[in-house]
Design a protein around this nucleic acid. Structure first.
Lengths: 225, 225
DNA sequence: ACCTGAACACCGTTCAAGT
DNA sequence: ACCTGAACACCGTTCAAGT
């Protein structure tokens, strides 16, 4: 029988960091960060809460490891994307990962030292370097792109918390757009006017438009030289 | 005697939402979000934790009110900034508020519905509207600016948590720069190279450089018409 | 060495009892 | 009407006892 063992202290389905993180990701995807705790994790892994600590140092490390798992496609994109679309490719990969796993966006926004960010930053920087801008502007340009990506990611994550996965996202947008259209005409003329655009916009497309604005701004630095 | 009262059920120094929020801001500034709890708040206000709930609905509302207070200069800037520097003015006001009160950056990143953001968005949008870009691009452009501002704010807040107020910020930057310079030369050529720039960069200046990149990108949209 | 789960510390929130 | 603080529910984390 595969996996059969005697009943020693160890379990047949040995607890590993990988299994713990997998279950954590499933809980996070189902119920968000609020749904994840060591008692529930223990229950789903058929053990006590203390056992988890033999494999992860604390909840923060667990969240980081879970974030690493769901950001894997983005990091892979970062390691291999080349050419003029490299930034758009990796940016979209990050966007999609956070869209599918909003809790990861929150964690990344709160954890600028996360190792995935370093590889994404490197990818962005490598591309920025091909644009022929002054050396002194490279760091700021790459940082601007990463900060924008994290900003959108954080907002997306927050919006996902407001409009839970099971609720209708269209209803949520419609309600927000309606409240914008109702704002005081004197104080909020712009916001009132763009209420329609909010209703019909595509998050992903708009995210890319922002990336393109920054890339255009960076290219303009090169042209000025 | 001013303020003297008999010892009825009410207190001489009546509990008000304003006083509660003031004390909360002081605690948050001193010890961050981790330092704020209802027991401590009660102690400093010479009452029990339950009394707070007569004036604020819960901790989230308390954090929002505290954020509102420290973002007041930014919101004022948003309501009055005019002309070509309007976006830079309001962006810097937000930056400075979060720099002085990092916990507010975290809360804003997590709360896209915060009323202060609406006024900042309106200010940004009003300026974007003067740039002569297609109507269809206005919403995305204003959103890009706000998302960038919130992204930087969130990162700043996270960095402040990593390098507490009392520690030397120069040491922190030096240590991070050193770790970047030590990265694998094959996999992280860009990050290694910009380690020096990290060491010497000015956060505020770099933040503005990013705002300018986006504004340049937006202006390019107008030129294309 | 790894697992177990009771216990500890801490915190948001509620509520019955007070004035 | 507002205040008080004990109590409840919940959770991260530790640790003595097990195998």
């Amino acid at each position: 029988m595969p996996g059969s063992t005697r009943h020693t202290g160890r379990r047949a389905d040995a607890l590993t960091k990988q299994r713990i993180v997998e279950v954590a990701v499933a809980i996070l995807d189902a119920d968000g960060e609020r749904g994840l705790n060591f008692r529930r994790l223990g229950r789903e892994l058929r053990t006590g809460p203390g056992a988890i600590y033999h494999h992860v140092a604390n909840k923060d490390e667990l969240l980081s490891a879970a974030t690493e798992v769901v950001l894997e496609p983005a990091v892979t994109a970062a390691d291999s994307a080349r050419g003029r679309d490299a930034v758009r490719t990796v940016a979209l990969a990050v966007f999609d990962a956070i869209d599918a796993h909003p809790w990861a966006g929150t964690h990344l926004s709160l954890t600028p030292t996360h190792s995935a960010l370093l590889r994404i930053f490197e990818c962005i920087g490598g591309h920025v370097r091909t644009l022929g801008i002054p050396r002194s502007a490279e760091f700021a340009s790459a940082s601007a792109l990463l900060n924008y990506i994290l900003g959108v990611g954080g907002q997306n994550a927050a919006n996902a918390r407001l409009a839970p996965a099971d609720s209708d996202r269209g209803d949520f947008l419609t309600a927000t757009a309606a409240s914008w259209a109702d704002l005081d005409a004197e104080r909020f003329p712009f916001t009132r006017d763009v209420a329609d655009q909010l209703r019909e916009h595509d998050d992903r497309e708009q995210f890319l438009a922002g990336i393109d604005l920054i890339l255009d701004g960076i290219r303009a630095l090169g042209a000025k030289r």
